[in-house]
């Protein structure tokens, strides 16, 4: 599904990603862990097309399509979804209107009929039920005045509505207390399917207690320096990042 080869990227003059390789097959969940400044968020942003990064080498293909040839909205229509670490507040933009515009943009690009108000509402109710959410967030402007937990729940709800092929969760656990974390993780788990892949970017092992990955990768200094199963996350929790990162450097 996702194939990243030799990816290098700069922010300004500084090289952040220094030759990153990653293969994600359908239905797999990959966790990317690493210390602060290792390039985790940069990787998520570069894949989704945020401005401010320059890709200097390598490629990223989603089902064979080169992501770097596409605008952010085209990547989303192809099935890429980024759950933001810091979801943006959009005062004055109604959440429901926003979701309907997003969903219809994606459907239109696939040659599907746009949803009318009735079928949109039906789908929305169905997804709310799956995620055990109420509709109180929908009538408000997007993320505006939301608590940290509400923002992250809104991200997961958008993911449920847009049904991506590949979801990247960027530090979804940051700023959440344990109850909020559980709600968000339950949502993510409800969206697991044999066709949908996920990349979970996180600093802490904690999130992986709730979202169990198939693979764990350690990112340091812009490269994946170790990959393993979910037991690798536990080892990191116990020993910290130092032993791998320093070992690599030595």
């Amino acid at each position: 599904m996702l194939s990243v080869k030799g990816l290098k990227a700069n922010v300004g003059d500084k090289e952040i990603l220094r030759g990153l390789d990653l293969e994600v097959a359908p239905g797999e969940i990959h966790a990317i862990m690493g210390p602060n400044g290792s390039g985790k968020s940069t990787f998520a942003h570069v894949l989704s097309g945020r401005e401010g990064y320059e890709v200097t080498a390598g490629s990223a293909k989603l089902d064979g399509t080169d992501l770097f040839e596409l605008e952010p909205e085209e990547r989303a229509r192809l099935g890429l979804f980024l759950a933001f670490q810091y979801p943006v507040e959009l005062p004055g933009v109604n959440n429901m209107y926003f979701l309907k515009a997003a969903l219809n943009a994606i459907r239109k690009s696939r040659g599907e009929d746009e949803f009318d108000a009735v079928s949109f509402m039906r789908l929305m109710k169905e997804k709310l039920k799956v995620l055990h959410l109420d509709d109180s967030l929908l009538k408000r402007p997007v993320n505006f005045g939301f608590s940290g937990g509400e923002k992250k729940r809104n991200e997961i709800f958008q993911m449920a509505m847009l049904e991506p092929k590949l979801a990247i969760l960027d530090e979804t656990d940051s700023g959440l207390d344990i109850d909020a974390l559980r709600i968000v993780a339950d949502g993510v788990n409800a969206l697991r399917s044999p066709e949908r892949s996920m990349i979970v970017v996180t600093h802490y092992q904690r999130l992986l207690d709730y979202i169990e990955p198939d693979y764990v990768h350690v990112l340091a200094k812009g490269q994946i320096i170790r990959s393993g199963g979910k037991e690798l996350a536990l080892e990191l929790e116990e020993k910290g990042y130092g032993w791998i990162v320093d070992g690599e450097a030595a």
Binding site: G49, R75, A76
Partner: peptide, 14 residues
């Protein structure tokens, strides 16, 4: 730009 990117990342044209 942050707000614009957020909307575009959801499939909405610029």
């Amino acid at each position: 730009p942050e707000a614009l990117f957020y909307l575009r990342s959801r499939g909405i044209s610029a």
